[in-house]
């Protein structure tokens, strides 16, 4: 029973973080049909933001807010500087630009800060534990669960009930038609990058909260996770990204619990085998999004 409870909390906290990562990636993909490979670097930027504010004496929540804001601003800036100029030309160009931006940001951190890990300030709450049902749970895991569920609900509300959300969903479904009906393309795309940056910022707090320090490559793992989660869940569906995030966390955690020591070192092979099986069964991912038109 205790193991089951422990397992559930582990899956939910990892899955919550994974779902947020996936959502940040898919929000841009939905509209631009672009896998933004510089997404991981938004997470990195927020982390280094925290590092640079270390010792500034600001309350942690203020530092966290600034770090998230930094990720949002970087997200929007990448859109302006890297994507907007080539957006209308070719999908390949945009893809290459996203790789280029990722490399530039990583190497900037490498050159101007250090290749070695740098510590970020974390509140005491992140290292406390809660006794619950006979097990000790790190408070950070509970924070991750609450934060991710809260954000997912807020995001669902935004997408379903506000004009902006409806416009974004329209743009994701049929970009050209949406434009003809008066949805401003640039605004929608910038907003998508801002939201993506926001998720990256929050993920950064939760993910780096686990690690305690930031490195130039800190965004690689979240990017990979987000990519796989969206592929399993369905690249065109926001719900799919969330489902994919939780499913991937479930698969990873279950394998971690179940595999014997000899097999545990090959865990990723098992994970990806399952991913392949899922894709063979549902090539478009678990949740098929609305049929989409071509990006313009």
């Amino acid at each position: 029973m205790q193991t089951l409870l422990q397992f559930t909390i582990d899956v939910l906290s990892l899955g919550g973080a994974y779902a947020l990562m996936a959502l940040g990636l898919v929000i841009v993909y939905g509209i631009l049909k672009l896998v933004n490979f510089a997404y991981g670097e938004l997470i990195m930027v927020a982390g280094y933001g925290l590092f640079l504010m270390n010792g500034s004496g600001l309350p942690w929540l203020v530092m966290a807010a600034v770090a998230v804001l930094l990720a949002v601003v970087t997200g929007v800036l990448t859109e302006y500087a890297a994507f907007r100029p080539v957006r209308a030309k070719s999908v390949t160009a945009v893809l290459i630009t996203s790789f280029a931006f990722s490399t530039i940001l990583q190497n900037a951190a490498l050159l101007f800060i250090s290749p070695r890990p740098r510590n970020v300030p974390l509140p005491d709450l992140f290292s406390q534990t809660v006794a619950f049902g006979g097990i000790l749970i790190p408070a950070r895991n509970l924070i991750t669960i609450v934060a991710s569920i809260g954000l997912l609900l807020l995001f669902a509300f935004l997408m379903k009930r506000t004009v902006l959300g409806i416009a974004m969903r329209a743009a994701a479904t049929q970009f050209r038609m949406a434009r003809m009906l008066g949805v401003p393309a640039n605004l929608i795309i910038s907003t998508a990058f801002a939201i993506s940056g926001f998720f990256a910022g929050v993920v950064s707090l939760l993910w780096i909260g686990r690690i305690g320090s930031v490195t130039p490559g800190v965004g690689l793992e979240p990017l990979l996770v987000a990519f796989i989660a969206t592929v399993i869940g369905g690249m065109r569906s926001l719900q799919g990204a969330v489902l994919g995030g939780f499913l991937l966390a479930f698969i990873n955690t279950a394998l971690n619990y179940l595999l014997t020591q000899d097999l545990l070192q090959f865990r990723d092979a098992f994970t990806f085998t399952l991913v392949i099986l899922i894709l063979l069964w549902r090539p478009e991912g678990l949740i098929r999004g609305p049929a989409t038109g071509q990006r313009t």
Binding site: L220, E221, T253, Y257, Q261
Partner: peptide, 16 residues
Amino acid sequence: EDTYNNGDNDFSAQLA
């Protein structure tokens, strides 16, 4: 003896 995969940042199963 237990096994960990670098980059997981998740030690919960091992702890269990």
